[in-house]
Structure formats: structure tokens, C-alpha cells
Amino acid sequence: MPNSQTSVVVIGGGQSGLAAARAVRDAGLHPLVLEAGDRPVGSWPHYYDSLTLFSPARYSAMPGLPFPGDPDRYPTRDEVADYLRSYADSLGVEIRTGHRVRTVSTTPTGFLVHTAAGEEIPASGIVAASGTFGRPHLPVLPGQQEFSGEVRHVAQYREPAPYAGRRVIVVGAGNSAVQVGYELADVATVTLASVSPVHFLDQRPNGRDLHHWLDTSGFDDLPPAWLAKVIHHIPVLDTGGYRKAFESGVIDRRPMFTTFEEDRVVWADGTSEHVDAVIFATGYRPHLDYLEPIGALDAGLPQHVAGISTTHPGLVYVGLEFQRSFSSNTLRGVSRDADYVVSALAAHVRDAVTIVGL
């Protein structure tokens, strides 16, 4: 183990953690990546089977390793996992898989990371890069506990086959809700229920993928305060097929239902209907419970400015939604955020080393 006064523990071995590890290494410090899973690929293997990136391969690579294959294709879930594994191998840093972090505590010189296996790992800095997949947001509606049908979050969904011939409601108005509802409609009767209407955005305006325009316009670099002024709803990227499915009635969209009954839901207009399954595509929250004991969170959310903790010097975050820009928690944007927060972290670590005379 490197000198604990110059080592930085990166919690999470997915895209955010690997981006952070590269930035820590390049800053001249010693990254140690702790990944709960058996591979340094984060949550990608656990998403639904048909998931593809919304950005082309050319805009989905991380620094130092191009995404293989046709740069204009949209990589699949498994291709992303394979890419991240290759990226991890290319970094030349220490990555420990099967190491779940239970909690973090503070010491006079930094932090102590406690793993589920009982290890205690000292560190001068912490990068919290554990993503959101481990904390799916599942709303609870009246009558939900008594509902006899299936209720699950999209995090638990894999493929449409088990829903063949069934009545299914998908809750949500984002990309995942529409993508899952669209493929389920081939085998089931599907309604998409949401508080707000679905807002579609052309995936390929003027014959070029949207990400080309985001990149060349500088939109990806707009700070969150500006984004709040121009983005009121996260749009669903569409090449035309999704919109047509709604317009033709292949997928039915309705305002959110209000209540569950024994085997039914009650819609906003008071009518009720038998339903076999409800899949909530209602997003995720930062999975950072290991920081709760040191007071770094407020109602489960990190207290930070642009990914730098406002409660604990030496603690930074990578992979938070809208952390510094529209692309903060994506493959194309996470490395920019990692460079930014690790620059501040490295300065803190070096100052601390100087103070203790090392």
C-alpha cells in the first residue's frame, strides 16, 4: 500500500471511479479503487438487456482510449462494460474488486475507509464515485402495499418476455421509460403514465447526431445555473420511432394514476382498470450512505459545490447528475469533472503533507 498520506481512495469502479483514478494518477498521487462488484465496470451489466447509449461511440470514449468500432454507432450495454474493463486495464492503477465500502470515518490526517469485510484503509483523500444504480427511486402510492400485481423499479427489469400478454404500466417520461415501454409494446398492452407529457428531441437534427451539436455549440459546458434556465424537462431522444408509436396508439400515454387497488389502478379521471405489472422508471438518487456517519450528506444528498465537498476538505464527488454541466454523469463528460475536482483534491493533499512535514 502506498504512503497513506499521499493515497486517495476512489469509491466505485464504474465510469466515474475510473475517470477519477486516471485523474488522481495524473496528479501524481496514488489512487486505490474499491469496487463492490466482481469487475471494474460499475452498474452497466445490471441494466436492461436492450439498453444502448444515447451518444455515439465517438462521443462516449474516455481520455486515452478510443471506443472501438464504428464511431457513429450507438454502443450496447455489454459493449460499454467491455470498454470500461479495457479502460481499467489500461490505467495501471490498483483496483480491488469485491470490496464494498461500509462507512467512512475521519482521522487527524485524513480518512479511514471501512469495508464490509472489516478492512480499515487510511487515505488522505476520498473520491466518492459510487453512482446511483444502488439507490433506485421508487415512489410509494396509496394502496401500493396491498396491490397483488407486480411492482418494480426499472433497475430490476431485464427483458420483455416475462410480460408477454400482460397489462403493463410504465411510470415515467424519460428515456428509460420510453425505451422500455416501446419494447414491451411488442408483447404486452402498455400505458406510459407520467406527471408531465413526454418531450421528444430529434436524435439526428440536420443529419448529425445531437451530440455533435452539443459539442460544437459548447452546450455541454454550460454550468447548472444556466441549464436550469433552458431545460425544463429532460427530453427523450428519438429518431422518429418512439413518437410514431405514441401517435399511432401502440403505446398509450396517460396522466399519472392516483391509487392502487387490489389488482387495479385508479386513474386521474376516477376510472379503474386491472393491471398485471407496474414498472417505475423514476430515476435514481446518489448512493452515498457510507458518508452519512461523518455528516457529509443532507437528506441523503451530498453537500458540495461543483463536486467539491463543503463539509470535509479532502472529499470530492464524481458522477453526480448536473454536477458541473449537462454531461456530468455521462461517459463523455465525467472525465472533465474528474480533472476539476481532483485538481482541488491534490492541492489539499499536498498542503496536508507539507503541514505534517512529510
Rank of each mutant, 00 (worst) to 15 (best):
L291H: 10
A277C: 08
L301C: 13
E273H: 01
D298M: 14
T271N: 06
A277N: 05
R264C: 02
W267D: 04
H274N: 04
S309Q: 09
E292C: 12
L291I: 06
E273L: 02
F280L: 11
E261K: 09
W267H: 03
A299W: 15
L301P: 09
G283D: 11
G295W: 01
G300L: 07
R264Y: 03
P302H: 11
V265P: 04
P302F: 04
D276V: 10
D276M: 11
P302W: 04
L288H: 09
D289T: 12
E292K: 05
V266A: 11
E261R: 13
A306D: 13
A277S: 07
S272T: 08
S272C: 05
G270Q: 00
Y290T: 09
I308M: 13
V266D: 09
G283Y: 04
H304T: 00
L291P: 05
S309V: 10
D298N: 14
G270S: 05
V265M: 05
T271K: 12
L297E: 12
I308Y: 15
G295N: 07
P286K: 00
D263S: 08
A296N: 07
L301F: 14
A277D: 09
W267Y: 00
A268P: 06
R264K: 04
S272L: 01
R285Q: 08
A299K: 15
I279Y: 09
H274C: 02
W267N: 08
R285I: 03
G283V: 04
W267T: 02
E292W: 01
V266P: 05
I308P: 14
Y284H: 06
D289K: 01
H274G: 03
T271V: 03
A299E: 15
V278K: 09
S309E: 08
G295Q: 13
V275M: 06
L301Y: 15
L291Q: 06
A306V: 13
V278S: 06
V266R: 10
S272A: 10
A281C: 06
D289W: 01
P293D: 04
P293M: 07
A277R: 05
A306W: 15
G307P: 15
F280E: 12
R285C: 00
E292L: 02
A281L: 05
R264T: 01
P286Y: 01
F280D: 08
I308G: 14
R264G: 02
D298C: 15
L291A: 07
H274Q: 05
I279D: 11
P302N: 11
I294G: 04
A268V: 01
E292G: 10
L288S: 10
A299M: 15
Y284A: 08
H287W: 10
D298T: 15
W267F: 10
G270E: 09
D269E: 02
A277H: 01
D263Q: 03
S272K: 01
